[in-house]
Simulated assay, not measured.
Amino acid sequence: MARLRKTRSLAKAPAQPAPLADDRERLSQLVSSLPDLDRRQLLLQWRNHLGGTAPAHLPTWLLARLLAYRIQAAAFGDVSATTQRRLRSLKDAGDHSTPVPFANRSPATRDGVDLRPGALLAREWRGRLERVSVLSEGFAWNGDTYASLSMVAKAITGTSWNGHRFFGLRSGRQTPARAMPAKARQARATPSAPSQSEAAP
């Protein structure tokens, strides 16, 4: 009976009090420093602040974001079930014309030009030329259809790859043109006005 009472009292434990101003400042500094850490340092921060080990399959950038979220949720409290239900209902009732955050992006060249259905991508892999056709809904390779370029790259190589990088559509840290601000993209696309000497007949 004593054990049962102890369990009930734990279930009704009050929520953690909100952090003080100093704690908020320290937390803010910690969270803002996470993107600058390498994978090993992020795993150490995970162990120090959350205990246990981080999911091994997460890429470094996502590990930093998840760690930031979990640290803040531990300090301020997580999203309540009521809020989660409200967000789901808004999503279901909302406008579906906006893309889903993690939807497959359309393939584009390094300059940000979208590839249309019918385009052919080629990549040499281990001495063999691999050709992939862009379809209206996915990609065709070797007689099969795939939902994303990453799935095609995995089928070709047997390991996980970023499909856009594998096919040379984007390089490591180069900013694609679509991600640039509109003004910068416009300046890059429009040729500069001819000089006076060129304009004169």
Rank of each mutant, 00 (worst) to 15 (best):
S192C: 08
G168M: 02
E198Y: 10
A11N: 01
L115P: 05
A108R: 11
G118S: 03
A199H: 07
N142A: 12
A64M: 10
G51A: 04
R188G: 11
A11I: 01
G138D: 15
S106P: 10
R165N: 10
A11R: 06
H96L: 08
T190I: 07
A103M: 03
D23S: 08
P201H: 08
G143D: 04
D95P: 10
L50Y: 03
R185F: 07
L10Q: 02
A15E: 04
S150N: 10
A140R: 15
S9G: 05
V31I: 14
A56W: 01
W61N: 05
P194N: 03
V134I: 15
H96G: 09
F167C: 09
S195G: 00
A2K: 15
R123D: 00
G118Y: 04
A189G: 03
Q72F: 00
D111V: 05
T53H: 13
T83I: 05
L30P: 02
S195T: 00
G127Y: 05
L34H: 02
G138Q: 14
A15R: 06
L67N: 01
R105T: 08
R110H: 04
L67T: 03
R110S: 06
E124T: 13
A177I: 09
S32W: 14
D23V: 09
S148Q: 02
A184N: 03
A54T: 13
D111Y: 05
A21N: 10
V152M: 01
A93K: 11
D114G: 06
L34E: 01
T83N: 12
P201E: 08
L27Q: 07
G118T: 03
D36G: 10
E124R: 12
A155P: 01
F102H: 05
R88V: 11
H96S: 13
G127F: 02
Q72E: 00
S150H: 06
L149D: 02
R88P: 04
G52W: 00
E137Y: 14
A147T: 12
S89C: 09
S197Q: 12
E198S: 12
L129W: 09
A73I: 00
D92T: 08
T145Q: 14
A193V: 13
Q196C: 10
A54L: 04
D114R: 11
P176C: 07
S192A: 11
R86A: 07
A54Y: 00
R5L: 12
S97G: 06
L129T: 12
L43C: 09
D36F: 11
A182F: 12
S80V: 11
S192Q: 08
D38G: 06
P181Q: 07
A2T: 15
L44N: 15
A81C: 11
R26K: 06
P14C: 04
D23P: 03
K91W: 06
S150Y: 08
V132R: 01
T98Q: 08
D92E: 14
R65M: 01
A13K: 10
Q174P: 01
R24I: 13
S89K: 07
V134R: 15
A73P: 00
P191E: 12
A74Q: 14
A153N: 12
I156N: 02
V100R: 07
L44K: 15
K154D: 09
R3I: 14
S28L: 07
T159A: 15
L43S: 04
L149V: 03
R185A: 09
K154V: 07
E25A: 15
Q16D: 07
Q72G: 02
Q84N: 06
K12I: 04
W125F: 13
S133T: 15
N48M: 04
S160I: 03
R5N: 13
D114L: 13
A73Y: 01
R110M: 04
M151Y: 08
